[in-house]
């Protein structure tokens, strides 16, 4: 079970790969979902793919390829 406050470093740098990898997967999944929301929001506000890419620290091509599919404004 989770122990929200005192085990933060324990999970982040867990000696047990099962615990550590599970933490990494959970973070990645959360980051992916937030990225989808934030990129869509930025596009609605008129941000260019270059601006979004710069903010995310990736290339414009990478940002466009990952997020532009099926969007009618692209």
């Amino acid at each position: 079970m989770a122990t929200p406050t005192h085990d933060v470093t324990a999970a982040a740098a867990a000696d047990d790969p099962a615990v550590g990898l599970r933490a990494v997967r959970a973070l990645r999944e959360l980051a992916e979902r937030l990225e989808v929301l934030q990129v869509a929001s930025a596009r609605r506000r008129g941000w260019s793919w270059q601006q979004i890419a710069d903010a995310l620290g990736v290339t414009r091509q990478a940002a466009h390829k990952k997020h532009a599919h099926g969007r009618k404004d692209d």
Binding site: M1, A2, T3, P4, T5, D7, V8, A10, A11, A12, V19, R22, A23, R25, A26, L27, E29, L30, R33, L34, L37, S41
Partner: peptide, 26 residues
């Protein structure tokens, strides 16, 4: 599920709070 509330809690992230915040905005 992939969005693993307990694993995030162990990292100090309250998924319910994140969910509430994103739903308030989006």
């Amino acid at each position: 599920t992939a969005l693993d509330a307990d694993a995030l809690a162990a990292l100090g992230i309250d998924l319910d709070q994140v969910r509430a915040a994103t739903e308030a905005t989006f």
